[in-house]
């Protein structure tokens, strides 16, 4: 439906069109969205735990985690509140490298990412492995600011950005695809920006 009187808009340059998913607009800044206050997690207190169901498989402290292979990933990111940001430069540990360090083959097809503030989000294993996702430790070469999820956040750039859990402290393999925090509150179970899967039940 064409909106009367809306003609111009701030449309992106046409050569960028192919990089902007439906319903998104290009953002130069880096807006912050989260469900509660920003937790201040000190790296001394930080840890990351890999679990299979309730069972811990391996736990890393900050120094141990930083000793894992670091990978650079520069990706476009897409927030469900409709902004897209191009070429965000991250560095961190690929989920593949975390699993390798734990000597673990994915035991199930699904995971729940856990954060220090109790936030959770579900991501299928196939969206985390094969170089698709990492636990990011640096943004633009600097430690990630608390507002943006530091010390460490999940980065799953091909899904809406709420899947890239801030203040990450663990990854848990689950037998079923279990909805996380926003998924229980009306947001889509998978969240593919190219299929515009924003809210529960969007095809």
């Amino acid at each position: 439906m064409v909106t009367r009187g809306f003609s111009s808009g701030r449309r992106p340059p046409t050569d960028d069109d192919a990089r902007i998913p439906p319903g998104q607009y290009l953002e130069q800044g880096f807006p912050v969205l989260s469900a509660g206050p920003t937790p201040r997690v000190r790296t001394e207190d930080w840890s990351f735990t890999l679990k299979h169901g309730p069972r811990p498989i391996k736990k890393w402290n900050w120094a141990e985690f930083n000793a894992l292979p670091l990978t650079k990933m520069t990706r476009d990111i897409h927030c469900v509140t409709a902004w897209t940001k191009f070429d965000t430069p991250w560095q961190g540990v690929l989920v593949d490298d975390i699993l390798a360090d734990a000597g673990l083959e994915p035991p199930t097809g699904f995971t729940l990412a856990h954060a220090f503030d109790g936030y959770t989000t579900n991501v299928p294993v196939k969206d985390l492995t094969g170089g698709k996702a990492m636990v990011a430790l640096l943004y633009e070469g600097e430690p990630i600011a608390p507002d943006h999820g530091g010390p460490a956040r999940l980065l799953v750039p091909h899904l809406y950005f709420w899947k890239s859990a801030k203040w990450l402290n663990g990854l848990q393999f689950t037998t079923r695809d279990e909805p996380g925090f926003w998924e229980l509150r009306g947001y889509h179970i998978y969240g593919d920006p190219w299929r515009e899967q924003r809210y529960t039940g969007d095809p």
Partner: peptide, 22 residues
């Protein structure tokens, strides 16, 4: 404001926020 509430004694888990972005 959320930090001020925490400093004033409200548990972080009881604070819900809505951010209008930038």
């Amino acid at each position: 404001a959320a930090q001020a509430l925490i400093d004033a004694g409200v548990a972080a888990g009881n604070i819900r926020t809505e951010r209008y972005g930038v």
